[in-house]
Structure formats: C-alpha cells, structure tokens
Simulated assay, not measured.
Amino acid sequence: MSTFLGALRRLLLTPSLASVTFAKRGFPVVESEATRRLESIPQSVICGFEWGIDSRTLWEVERRLAIVEPEFRGFAYEGATMAYTVRDAMAGGRGGCARELLLGPGQPHIFLTYIGIGFAMARLPRVLWKKVLPDLTGSPYFPTMSWLAVDGYGFDRAYFDTKKWIDGQYVPKSYPWAGAPDYFLRAVDQGIGRALWFIHGGNPAGVAAAVQRFAAHRRADLWSGVGLAATFAGGCAPDGLAALRGAAGDHRPELALGVVFAVKARTYSGFVPAHTETAAGRLAGLSLADAVRIADETEVSADTTGPVPAYELWRQRIRDRFVPDAGRLAS
C-alpha cells in the first residue's frame, strides 16, 4: 500500500512506460517480435522503479517483483534499486533502503542492482554520489562489481540523451569512483556499449557501425558492453550473432568478455533464458558451464589493492583467456 508521500514521489519521479519505448526515443529500430521483447526490458525497469518509489515496505516491493516473469525480474530489481537509492538520497544519505534491498531479496540479482544505483546517479547531483553505494560487506562481489554502477550511469545517459552521448560521443568529467578516477571513463563506455545494443534494437550491423564511429581507444570497452547486452538481454537471431562476432574483428576477446560476465550474472540469478545459451555459443564458442568456469577461475579477490581496480583485473583475466584463441574465434 502506498502512502501520500509515496504516491507523490511516484507522480513526480516515475517516467511513463511510453517514454522508454524505442519509437519515443527515436531509435533506428524496425519493430518486430524480437525488438518488442527487447523493449520490455526498460519497461520492466520502470515498473520496478514505480513500485520501489511508492511502496511502504520492502515486503510489498518484493511481492510485486515476484510476479515479473523470471527473464525480466532482474531488470525490475534494477528499477527498484534505482528508486531506493533515490529515496536514500532524499533522506540526506541516511536511509538504508538500498542496503536492505541488496542484502535481502535483491541478492540473486546483485549484478543488475548495482546498475540500478547507476541509473539513480544519472538523476542525482554528483555531490551526492559519495553516499549512493551502501555498505554491502559480506555480500559476494562487493565492492568489486560496484563498478557496474558507473556502467549503469553510462547506459542511462546514452539511452536518454542519445544525441549528445552517442551522436556527439560526449566524454563526461571523470569522478573518483572507488578511488580510481582514471578508470571511471572506461566503465562509462562499457555502459554505453550496452546501450548501443538497445538503441539499435539488437541489429548487428547498426551496433557495429555505431561502435566504429567512436574513437579507437574507446572501442574495446564498447565491445565488451555489446557482448554483455547481446548475451544477457537477447534480441538477435543466431545468424545475426555470428555476424556480430565477425564485425567485432580484433575486439572479439572483449566481446567474449562481455559474454562471460552476462552468463555469470544470469546463472547467479537462478534463471538462464535460452537466448543466453545461444549467444554464449555463437559469440564466444562457450557452453554455459564453460563461461561460468572461466568467470570463477579468473575472479580477483575483492581486497586486491593497486592502481588497477580488482574489477578491471578480473576483466583482463577473462579477456586473456580468449586472446590465444583468436584464430579459433575467427573460424
């Protein structure tokens, strides 16, 4: 049950479902059954946000999220996390809503809930960012995967301000996230790469051409984002996935890196759709079990210190598994 304040927050802050459709955003997408299903993902995020920003208790939010079909439930948790992060910020950073969600029912979707924090960051002034990441000590992948919040920020800006961030290839001001300001822009580009998959409706030629228009030094991170989105979200037939792998060229190891993270996230959530298994095979030549094994064998300890974040060290180790096999991947 909502409260008056909750209803007011919902009315003032919740985007409409129509506002995230591909047509409304002006994306170059030819409507089909596949693109309509892909379009359901941002709409699932909006539903999760609406429930999170309005509901009185976490129990009520959890019960609402439970009715979302398993393939889209993690995206709804993204939206709920975004809402709870905004609510915590409105409480002066003293709220504990996001922490309770992420340590509780959101735990199976922890990879996506971090992204939800990034969606909130896109709507909050930077002065509040230092308080958006809750203390999740004891939670797996904390704080290593918190860089997905920055990824989420990049995705959001590319999706909602496409002319500036995609057409204009905007480079934002850096930020010392997790004490590593030099890596911030790379994590943003990983999110932009994911957004390109949606902006072009899973069309391999459109996605590849969009990546190619970016500066050369940004393309590796963009391709890893493309691989993650194509594998996690779906929206492309097997032949299209094979074409995408071919278009990645020298960046096939980065594409495969995205595949591995996507499979790991899907399996961790407890539900793996058929399109994820198909993408793992077509984009990286991997079975689901092989992708999870690579992720687990290369994982970096969260307490690793040094100039390179543990998150990027993990990514490098995964990528390196595919560099010697570049010839096989090209076959």
Results as ranks from 00 to 15, higher is better:
S2N: 14
T3L: 09
L11T: 08
L12A: 14
T14L: 04
L17I: 01
L17C: 03
V20I: 07
V20C: 06
V20W: 09
K24H: 14
K24Q: 13
R25I: 00
G26W: 05
E33F: 03
A34N: 03
R37N: 06
S40Y: 11
S44G: 01
I53D: 10
T57F: 03
T57C: 02
L58P: 02
L58D: 12
W59Q: 13
R63Y: 00
E71Y: 07
A80N: 11
M82Y: 14
V86H: 02
A89Y: 02
R94C: 01
A98R: 05
L101K: 05
L101W: 11
P105D: 05
Q107Y: 03
F111I: 04
T113K: 01
T113P: 00
Y114H: 14
M121S: 09
A122Q: 12
A122G: 14
R126Q: 11
K131I: 03
L136M: 13
T137W: 00
M145H: 12
F155S: 10
F155W: 14
I166V: 15
Q169H: 15
V171L: 13
P176D: 02
G179T: 02
P181S: 09
Q190S: 14
G191V: 09
G193R: 04
L196C: 07
N203V: 02
A215H: 08
A220M: 09
G225W: 00
G225C: 06
L228I: 01
A230I: 05
A230N: 09
T231P: 08
F232T: 03
F232L: 15
D239M: 07
L241D: 05
A242G: 06
A247G: 02
R252N: 06
V259W: 08
F271M: 06
R282M: 10
A284E: 11
L286E: 11
D290W: 04
I294D: 08
I294E: 12
I294T: 10
E299D: 05
E299K: 12
E299I: 11
D303Y: 07
W314T: 07
Q316E: 15
F322C: 09
D325S: 09
A326T: 09
